[in-house]
Design a protein around this nucleic acid. Structure first.
Lengths: 228, 228
DNA sequence: CCAAAAGTGTTAGGTCTACACCCATGG
DNA sequence: CCATGGGTGTAGACCTAACACTTTTGG
């Protein structure tokens, strides 16, 4: 495969993927970051990512980087490419083009094998990230925008929650992603009328009145996704 | 810039852009294709595209390929990246990743310096393309889907038309892109209430009753775009 | 005066928003 | 019994879809 002959003026580029991986924690949208161990931007926080390997699909590379760099114990529930960043000087080492991906991890953040793992992977509030390496602040910003527009379609919000969950929990996910409060009654009406949820009969014990538990409905997808 | 040191297993890739450039012609959505002059897929129709050059932005590369391969005389009115195709075997020459772009060209197709120009650029019905090289059929399909979802936002449909146009013409653009008929009265109500159009007083002569001419309203963008 | 295309309103149904009180449980 | 959080309905505004006839021009 290194027989690829490029035309004379074509750029020699590195092909990378970066992953903005989101999860909910304590009512807040969080994003997974790693502390860079090598130059450039050594010791600066960055989105997990790296170079695509030979024969590897882009989404496979995204999955691999997510697993390797973060010692995640769970597979992402959703993974999609959302934009490609290719400004000539975005990486001081040379031309590196990054296909940015958006991932959703379910159920809080008990996913790192150890808190503040050895490779320095940690969750941060997605809306107030620390200083980020390269153009990762811009990538994160666009990932959040995409997440917001994707919320409506399909049941993407469900991917943030465990198999069973309560409506207040689901509403919390929406609110954290959109950064605004929603009306409880309208939210319930809308969600229940979509037919994506099935009551699972049981109730969860807590501080106040127990909430009805729901799970994904079997096959009844009422709304159709807009784009792959 | 060729000092870029890649890690051991990183793939050597060619970075390309491909452009699905659309225009209206005789009430039909058309796409610009070029006949490939070199192997692989020699003599097969393909989207205009090619390798990104050193120091070149992705969208600049898309513009350059569009101009060079098609001898276009007009600048596109809209150009956006919409998806990156990177399957390992999509190009038999080796690993080539293509950042696909969507372009809109205004006003019919009097744009090629000559019909069936020397480099074999020609317009085809976008919904019934000929056999296409590489994975360009898939790229085109997704470009059309994106075009459809983008129609609502902003005044993308306006970009297909000259400076002044009639409402029936604008409706024809919408219908051609969506592949379905729209209700005339509802269409007018909706478009006029958006405040994107300004009547330009004049009238165009034709077969039946002359139509009111419109142009883009100055600053009054009511709806906001979803994504850059 | 005829053919061709432009233009014009109303109604019904559905969707969205705002808004305040009662209920079930644990301590 | 009280604190905590879960659960419920309605009215007005707005948007959407369906639907048929009249107007203006050129030939």
């Amino acid at each position: 495969m290194d027989t690829l002959m490029l035309p004379p003026r074509a750029a020699t580029v590195g092909l990378a993927v970066d992953v903005a991986a989101f999860a909910m924690h304590e009512g807040e949208l969080q994003v997974l970051l790693v502390k860079r161990g090598t130059r450039p931007h050594q010791q600066v926080w960055a989105l997990p990512g790296g170079f695509v390997q030979e024969g590897e699909e882009l989404h496979e590379a995204a999955l691999r980087e997510l697993r390797d760099e973060t010692t995640l114990t769970l597979e992402p529930r959703h993974l999609e490419q959302f934009y490609t960043f290719g400004a000539p000087n975005r990486d001081p080492r040379g031309r590196v083009v990054s296909v940015a991906h958006l991932a959703v991890l379910p159920h809080g953040h008990a996913h790192l094998r150890e808190e503040r793992s050895i490779n320095g992977a940690r969750w941060f509030p997605a809306h107030q990230p620390p200083l980020l390496a390269f153009d990762h602040a811009e990538i994160l910003e666009r990932a959040i925008k995409r997440l917001q527009t994707r919320l409506e379609y399909q049941g993407l919000a469900l991917e943030f929650l465990p198999d069973t969950f309560t409506l207040p929990e689901l509403q919390e996910v929406h609110e954290a992603i959109l950064s605004r409060k929603l009306d409880k009654r309208n939210f319930r009406k809308r969600l229940l009328s979509q037919g994506l949820l099935a009551a699972s009969g049981e109730r969860r014990s807590g501080v106040g009145r127990p909430a009805q538990l729901y799970r994904r409905a079997r096959t009844t997808r009422r709304r159709v996704s807009a784009e792959p």
